[in-house]
Design a protein around this nucleic acid. Sequence first.
DNA 1: AATATAGTCAAGCATGCTTGACTATATCCG
DNA 2: CGGATATAGTCAAGCATGCTTGACTATATT
Lengths: 175, 175
Amino acid sequence: MPPPSSPAHAPVMSSPSQDFRDQLERAKRASVAQLLFRCARLLDEQAVARVRTRSGVSMRSSHTSLFPHIDLEGTRLTELARRMGVSKQAVGQLVGDLEDFGVVERVPDPDDGRAKLIRFTHAGQRSMLDGLALLREFEDEIEQHLGARRMRALHGTLLDLLALLEADPGDPASS
Amino acid sequence: MPPPSSPAHAPVMSSPSQDFRDQLERAKRASVAQLLFRCARLLDEQAVARVRTRSGVSMRSSHTSLFPHIDLEGTRLTELARRMGVSKQAVGQLVGDLEDFGVVERVPDPDDGRAKLIRFTHAGQRSMLDGLALLREFEDEIEQHLGARRMRALHGTLLDLLALLEADPGDPASS
DNA sequence: AATATAGTCAAGCATGCTTGACTATATCCG
DNA sequence: CGGATATAGTCAAGCATGCTTGACTATATT
């Protein structure tokens, strides 16, 4: 027999293992965090697969995450690293790949002999536009399933969530 | 002198590079996919950090993602691998870690001398509950910022999105 | 001249997988 | 029964990804 449960009254569990089972069940329904995580991974995988299938370029999301930080007139490596919050060597590797892909190029910075500007090549601009089109296509498909209203709501909520998460790196709540 | 951003012969309408700039600008506002990705990563990092800070156990989300698949009475390694869609060796590594943490144990399967059942230890059940409480706490904080309504909407939308992504692994669009 | 900064090269590490080879047990069938 | 074969799990190695740190060169700044 399990330890005497307090049937009528306590908020205590009927039995520990029953309680545990309930909790597990709840966990299976997946927290928002876990849902986000799985959605993000699947989305990323499928988007990357599409780009590679269609363009033949094996660009990954780590590469494309660089794009929004590259100014049209070119941006220094160190500045990119600062904006992205990683080491300049990390950016150097990404830029190296993108250079191999022919998407960006390094040109000397006229203002500083040590520096180089990372900027899109002509071809890179084209593939960038193609990639964005592909991504929009993908998201349109998703929107068809979710509906425009929910898609907008999702977008807005994620923006707010991101702001919260970026503002609040620690654990301010407790203690 | 400034980099010759575009040749002197002026493009007729809004220049290609202006168009490109617009596109980039749009990309900076981040697609849903990119937003999801960044939110997921931050959420994961912060959740993992909290668990480790409070419980001292360096469990990662790859470990916890195993939990929903472990039945209360125990589950075979191979079955876990099947449910998770990875190799049995991959699950073996996760289970090995969790065994070191004292969270799960391997007991012989009475029905099959080759098999073992992976199940939670007593302590594991406790830390599982603690972890879930922590996670709920975290999500409650998020809910405070987003509001209950948007949180529910987010949850529901993500569920649908997940279903879509899991149903549709390929690229059905391109014929 | 001293020092700081931009970038590069090389190595290393953590994570989360994979594949291949192997042991022990189960099951099927002639 | 016994041999062929399938299955559960383990051990070991390897790989891709996305970072890191350390050491270094070349140029700028003071």
